[in-house]
Amino acid sequence: MRLLVVEDNVPLLESIVEILSQEFEVDSASDGEEGLFLAAQNIYDAIVLDVMLPGMDGFEILKSLRSDSIQTPVLFLTARDSLEDRVKGLDYGGDDYLTKPFQAPELQARIRALLRRSGSLTTEHTLRYRGIELHGKDQDVKVDGKPLKLTAKQYELLEYMIQNSGAILTKEQIYDRVWGFDSDTTIAIVEVFVHHLRKKLEPFGYHEDIKTVRGVGYRLKEQ
């Protein structure tokens, strides 16, 4: 799973990334415009968003995302704790609110709660699609009760497809989500990994669930 953290206090940003990287893949931005650009790619499972940011504030970012029908869960992180700010954030479509200073376990727990509510995570860190089970803590995979060996990137690819089953994912979205913006590979790697993932699922018959959308990307059949 991949998270985005947008925070202009660099030491705090680095601390949050370090905390959340214990469980998730994490991207970061330190100003509003970069944060909006990354969030608008719609490849994240949750966003930690500071309110006071240079360029544009967190409320403006969230308002822009929701107007574009991007429903990624958002946790506001801010030093401001007035009732007005809390109401404003929730009215714009925010999902939770955490006031600085905070303790690492609370941040982690709130992120997990957001992911459970959005359906990206179960209490047991398990993601299910038909007879496929992904156990997030250890990246173990079982298909129809039998273990399946996947590489880390194959696991992330399958995880992303399951989280978005029924939706068309462009090659660009898959590349940015699984390999990241700073990867030194090319987008052609997506086709290679989809091919390999299908091969791994073929003995169980699930390879046919991954549909190619010509000229666009891929779609995992809706459950």
Rank of each mutant, 00 (worst) to 15 (best):
R66E: 02
K146C: 07
H196M: 11
R66V: 15
D45F: 05
H135Y: 02
L169R: 12
N42I: 07
L38N: 01
E25V: 14
L157P: 04
E84P: 10
S15I: 11
G131C: 10
L83A: 12
Q41G: 10
D95W: 00
Y129L: 08
I189M: 02
R110N: 07
G94M: 06
A29L: 13
L65I: 05
D45T: 12
I187Y: 00
T151P: 14
I132W: 01
V6Q: 11
P101Y: 04
G32E: 00
I111R: 08
V17T: 13
V48I: 12
Q22V: 06
G145D: 01
R116V: 15
R214T: 11
N164V: 06
L148H: 00
K171L: 02
S21T: 13
V194M: 11
T186H: 07
G89V: 11
R128Y: 01
R86G: 09
I168G: 02
L90E: 06
T122V: 05
T122R: 07
T151S: 15
S15D: 04
Y175H: 10
G89N: 07
V192A: 01
S64L: 02
P73S: 07
E191N: 12
G205R: 09
F24Y: 15
A152Y: 05
D95Y: 01
E7M: 03
G32Q: 03
Q22I: 04
R112W: 07
E25T: 12
L65N: 05
G215R: 07
D85T: 08
F76E: 04
A46H: 04
K200Q: 14
D144C: 09
L38W: 03
E208C: 10
E34A: 14
D95E: 14
L38Q: 05
